[in-house]
Design a binder for these strands. Sequence first.
DNA 1: AGCTTCACCCTGTCCTCTCC
DNA 2: GGAGAGGACAGGGTGAAGCT
Length: 300
Amino acid sequence: MDDFVCDTLTQWQLTDVIDRFKDEGIDEESFLLLDEGTISQLIPKAGPRLKFLKKCRGLIEPAVPPTSPDVQPTATTPPSMEDQTAPVVPAMIPQTLHIIPQFDIRQILTGSTEGKLILGSLDEDVIIPSQRKCLVRILVSHLMEKFGESPTSETKKALAAALIHGFPSLKDESDSSSGFGYWFTPGRNRRPATGFLEERLRNVRKRMRKPARSQSTQQTPPQSSEASTRRTFIPECTISEERAIQCKEWLKHNSQPLNQVEQYMQDTAVYRAKSLRENGWDIQGIRQEFPHLFTPGMVS
DNA sequence: AGCTTCACCCTGTCCTCTCC
DNA sequence: GGAGAGGACAGGGTGAAGCT
């Protein structure tokens, strides 16, 4: 374990868990990638875990300018140096925890028979090209199911990073910066993003839009068909509409406990997207229906 | 053998941001 | 405010591999 992790935990008065972090080989890089599931494993006791989560969440509040209506805080914009009140802890921690999604590759693969076979091969550090393609298909399918057909660059990066973090044998040794260049390389110097994941996404989008485009051009004016085909794909709700409405009503009247707010916001994400699209509310309407959408960290 | 699918590569366009 | 740079995406071409 490096000094960063030790110093941070000491400053947060969580010295009891330093050994646990040390045992699990948590260094600065993996510390910044911690998701709440991993935190639960590292800090099984509820008390220290809640304190840890509070410290992480607490840091996001000062990053949002309190009285500056002209300046809209963005999820990806780090606060300026003047805003950083905690010198030891970089302000990227809450963003990593709340804005950049986390992926459990093992869990994703366990969800299918083919995935389980690939998992076995990955555990033996041997993967053949056909398995690699199948792996990409499973991951991209998961990606599109959770984030639609055009996930953000950060989301794709997070997936690629989780992949090589979980299975170091898949690391791109020629890519010294991130290590996941084979899997996803963001666009640079007017070149488009590339990598197995990006290319698969592109091919899936092509296939999805091909029949829709040819059909719509026969039946509707060009402008409206263009507008409809360019709309972001919204996946099916994972919970019933009745349950989604229950969650929405609860969220309207409650702001604690925070983890339940987060859970309900996550559960109603698809329902929310469909409601916004169908109802066309203005900003006030959105605020009334989903007040927590404007709570820091909730957009993600 | 012919067809289909897919990875890989390329170009063009749109949009945002920064600089002057 | 305009120009330029850069990111992201769409669309298309090509060749290899798999399928019928």
